[in-house]
Amino acid sequence: MKITEEMVDYISVLSRLKPEPEEKAQLATELERIVSYMDVLNRLDTAGVEPLSHVFPIKNVMRPDLPCPSLPREGLLKNAPSEDPEAFLVPKAVE
């Protein structure tokens, strides 16, 4: 599997990461080496094998619809890097 710098750009945008231009070639090489190694999986015959997302067959774990007190707002906001007394603040995000 070939990993191009364009692919590095694409997955960087998806991941909201921004590698320096000079890092991209090296990242592409590194990722290609790892991804190529992962390609050994192609040798494993998985025809007809159901993908296993949850390792144990537990099912239907639910809770009753009963309200509990919410967290006091100070607790919610105390770790925020930018906030006012009521809300988290970010640069303009509304169109």
């Binding site: 692919m7 997955i11 998806l14 992962m38 999986l41 494993l44 998985t46 159901e50 993908p51 997302s53």
Partner: peptide, 22 residues
């Protein structure tokens, strides 16, 4: 992000979930 991205999900992520089953 790569193994989940459009076009690679089946070849990598889904394959790995099958590998996990095996």
């Amino acid at each position: 992000s790569f193994v989940l991205s459009a076009g690679y999900y089946d070849a990598y992520y889904k394959k790995a979930l099958q590998g996990k089953a095996v």
